[in-house]
């Protein structure tokens, strides 16, 4: 997969190999979420190409991108409040690349809920879920389509230290299953322990790329985060 030459996000190009976890990091306003929106089809790039496998998906709608196997979570959690917890997960498995229905769908959704740690919450009203459980639910919905590429937009943000560890472990299991993930994150511990590659952005362009170790110690990166003096 290749993303290159975006404009609102300017001059950004990186590759994601299969079974790889790529961290996309950078200061606030550097264009990380915009990049996610570009990949998932919310925005269309004015220049440049987005390629999934061997297909050019730059002009595709969110629906087409989703059907091609890209799933995502949102920076501000978006669960479906009037649907039950199980139905929230089902939403991901009915219309996308997976097209389940009936009893099989129900079993599948419950299995996923157990996987993200919501096995006990199946009968709880959706509106009364806690923040981390909302995040888990959203992740389960994204996983329900069995995506080729999973986009996690600050999925760990706002969790307390205990929850954070649970969250990191959860993503680790996904990585160990061989999922391909792009991760937008501010939590550096998570980046270090989860990512194979790291892309650092600032003001819309890439300033460094490499293993988390390399990327985070790159002088440009330190300058971007901490200012000129520390470089």
């Amino acid at each position: 997969m290749r993303f290159s030459g975006l404009r609102a996000v300017d001059c950004l190009s990186f590759n994601v190999r299969e079974n790889e976890v790529v961290g996309l990091i950078g200061p606030n306003g550097s264009g990380k979420t915009t990049t996610m929106n570009l990949i998932s089809g919310v925005f269309k790039p004015t220049h440049g190409d987005i390629v999934l496998g061997d297909r050019l998906i730059s002009d595709w709608s969110t629906r087409e991108v989703a059907r091609a196997g890209v799933a995502r979570t949102f920076q501000l959690v978006r669960i479906l409040p009037t649907l039950s917890v199980v139905e929230n997960v089902m939403a991901g498995a009915v219309f996308g690349s997976k097209r389940l229905w009936g009893r099989e769908l129900n079993r599948y959704a419950i299995r996923l809920l157990e996987k993200v740690g919501l096995g006990e919450m199946i009968n709880v009203p959706t509106a009364s879920l806690t923040y981390i459980n909302e995040k888990r639910l959203e992740l389960a919905r994204a996983l329900a389509s069995d995506p080729r590429l999973l986009l996690l937009d600050e999925w760990l943000a706002g969790l307390n230290p205990t929850e954070l560890q649970i969250g990191i472990d959860l993503i680790k299991t996904l990585r160990d299953e061989g999922r391909t993930i792009i991760l937008v994150e501010h939590v550096m511990d998570a980046i270090r322990s989860l990512c194979d590659t790291c892309v650092v952005m600032n003001t819309g362009s890439k300033i460094a790329e490499g293993s988390p170790q390399q990327a985070l110690s790159h002088p440009e990166v330190i300058k971007a985060y901490l200012g000129e003096d520390h470089a």
């Binding site: 998932s40 089809g41 919310v42 709608s61 969110t62 629906r63 989703a66 059907r67 799933a71 995502r72 978006r78 479906l80 409040p81 009037t82 649907l83 139905e87 939403a91 991901g92 009915v94 219309f95 996308g96 690349s97 919905r141 389509s145």
Partner: peptide, 15 residues
Amino acid sequence: RIIGNDELVAGHCGI
């Protein structure tokens, strides 16, 4: 029902 809840999510579910 999904569209009625959140149309953006509906799109991301492939609807």
